[in-house]
Amino acid sequence: MSSPPKIGVVSCSGESCVEGTVSRIATRLVLEKLRPENTVTICLPLFLAGEQGERMFAKFFLTIAVDGCEKKCAKNAIEKYSGRTACSIVVDDLLKEWGVSKPRSRRELDDEGMRVASRVAEEIVVAIDAIFSSGRYKKSVDV
């Protein structure tokens, strides 16, 4: 019997800036709609503040860090406590690369904000597919 392999997608969840909202919504879109069979997540503060069980998260799963800003809390936290991330995505960098303005409200994304979050979600999916196609992760895990 085999089960689908999981990749950990860890978002910074930053409340104080709109890029944090985009990173959080994009991550949830991947978890719920785009790759629900192949992804798991953990609350970043729980990962940081947690005990060994939570810290083992990134030892069990290859991880993709999704950060809002250049402070890269998610990437730095994972690499400090659990080892290298498989991929790091920074929303602020993507917005600059795409020449897209920041969405206006950190509380609730408008239509344009949702389009941005969907694009970021697609970037996460590209990273997930690249990990699987690289052969670093088996398509299924024997259990």
Binding site: C12, G14, E15, S16, G20, L44, P45, L48, C73, A77
Partner: peptide
């Protein structure tokens, strides 16, 4: 922070605090 007590309250990213910023 944005409606009920705007100006009297603010927020910040917990992750930054946990990372020791």
């Amino acid at each position: 922070v944005e409606d009920l007590r705007e100006g009297k309250a603010d927020t910040l990213c917990l992750s930054l605090l946990v990372m020791g910023d």
